[in-house]
Computed example of a mutant assay.
Amino acid sequence: MLGWNITIIRPNEPVLGPDDPRLDAHREGSWSSYISPDLDGDRVASWTAGLGGLDWIDPVGGEPAPSKQLRGGGYPSVYAVPAEVLLAGADRLSARPGLTNDSAVDLSAVVAMPAGEWIVVEAWDQS
Rank of each mutant, 00 (worst) to 15 (best):
A95C: 10
G98I: 13
R43L: 10
L107C: 05
E84Y: 06
A65F: 09
N101R: 11
A95I: 03
A104V: 12
S103Y: 04
G74D: 01
A88Q: 13
A80Y: 06
G29S: 09
A90R: 15
L86T: 03
L86G: 00
E28N: 06
I57P: 02
A80M: 03
A49H: 04
D38N: 11
V44A: 10
A90S: 15
P66H: 07
R71M: 08
I35M: 15
G50I: 11
L93W: 05
S30P: 00
D55K: 09
A45H: 10
L51T: 08
V60D: 02
W47D: 05
P37R: 11
V78I: 15
A104D: 07
S77D: 10
L70W: 08
D102A: 14
L87M: 12
G72L: 00
R71A: 02
G89K: 12
R71G: 04
G50E: 01
V105C: 04
S33R: 11
P97G: 03
P82Q: 06
V78G: 06
A49F: 06
L99G: 00
D40N: 13
Y75D: 05
R71P: 05
L99S: 00
D102M: 11
R92P: 00
G89N: 13
P37A: 10
V60N: 05
R96W: 04
T100E: 00
N101W: 10
S32D: 13
L107Q: 03
G98F: 09
S103W: 07
R96T: 15
S33T: 13
G72S: 13
P66G: 12
W31T: 07
P97S: 11
V44W: 04
Y75Q: 09
D38T: 09
P37D: 06
Y75E: 07
L70E: 01
S36G: 14
S94R: 12
S94E: 06
A49S: 08
G61V: 14
L107T: 14
L54E: 03
L70H: 09
G53A: 03
S30D: 12
V60F: 01
S30W: 04
S36A: 12
A80N: 02
R92W: 12
P64M: 11
A49T: 13
T48D: 07
V105D: 01
G41C: 13
R71C: 02
G73H: 06
S36C: 11
L87N: 08
L54F: 03
D55Y: 11
A80V: 01
P97W: 11
G98P: 14
L107K: 07
Y79A: 05
G61I: 12
G74A: 09
Y34E: 00
R92V: 08
S77H: 04
P82C: 02
R96F: 09
S30Y: 08
P59L: 05
G29H: 03
G52I: 03
L87S: 06
A49D: 01
P82N: 12
L54P: 01
A83S: 14
A80G: 04
A80F: 02
G41W: 00
G29M: 10
D106N: 15
Y34K: 05
A83T: 04
G89F: 10
D91C: 01
L86C: 07
P97V: 10
L70I: 13
W56V: 15
G29D: 00
W56M: 10
K68H: 02
